[in-house]
Simulated assay, not measured.
Amino acid sequence: MKVLHCKDLGFDCPGIVKADSENEVLQQAAQHAQEVHQVQITPEMAEQAKTLIRDE
């Protein structure tokens, strides 16, 4: 299981994205960022997010 904490990306948010693959985590994180924070994920942000995904 791959995990990404929203707060690790700099948001004051308790959101946690969990999925089976990095790509799924990134897709869900991008959707969360747009819906909750009104932020479009740039390719640079996606690359940063990849480095913050952890195994659980």
Rank of each mutant, 00 (worst) to 15 (best):
D55R: 06
Q34Y: 15
E24D: 14
P43N: 05
M1T: 14
H32G: 07
E56F: 04
C6Q: 01
P14W: 02
D12F: 12
E47D: 14
T42S: 14
C13M: 05
V3D: 05
D8K: 02
P14F: 07
Q31V: 14
T51A: 09
Q38V: 13
H5N: 09
I53A: 00
D20P: 00
R54S: 07
Q27P: 05
A30M: 11
T51P: 03
M45T: 03
Q34D: 13
A49H: 03
L9I: 07
Q48C: 00
A29K: 03
A19E: 04
P14D: 13
D8E: 09
N23K: 10
V36E: 12
G15Q: 03
D12K: 09
S21A: 06
T51G: 04
E56K: 01
H5M: 05
V36K: 12
F11M: 08
A30Q: 14
I41C: 13
M1F: 04
Q31C: 08
D12I: 10
V39R: 13
L26K: 01
H32W: 14
Q40D: 15
V17E: 02
Q27Y: 07
L4D: 01
K2T: 13
K7R: 13
D12C: 07
M45A: 08
D20L: 05
D55T: 10
Q48F: 10
S21Y: 06
Q28H: 04
A46R: 14
E22I: 13
Q48P: 00
I16N: 00
N23W: 06
T42E: 09
A30D: 11
A29F: 12
E35M: 15
L9F: 00
S21I: 12
K2I: 14
P43Q: 05
K7L: 02
E35D: 15
D20Y: 07
L26I: 11
P14E: 12
Q34F: 15
Q27L: 14
A19Y: 01
A29D: 05
D20K: 08
Q34W: 15
K7P: 04
K50H: 04
A19L: 05
E35N: 11
V36H: 14
G15K: 04
M1C: 06
L26Q: 00
T42D: 09
Q48T: 11
L52G: 05
V39K: 11
F11S: 01
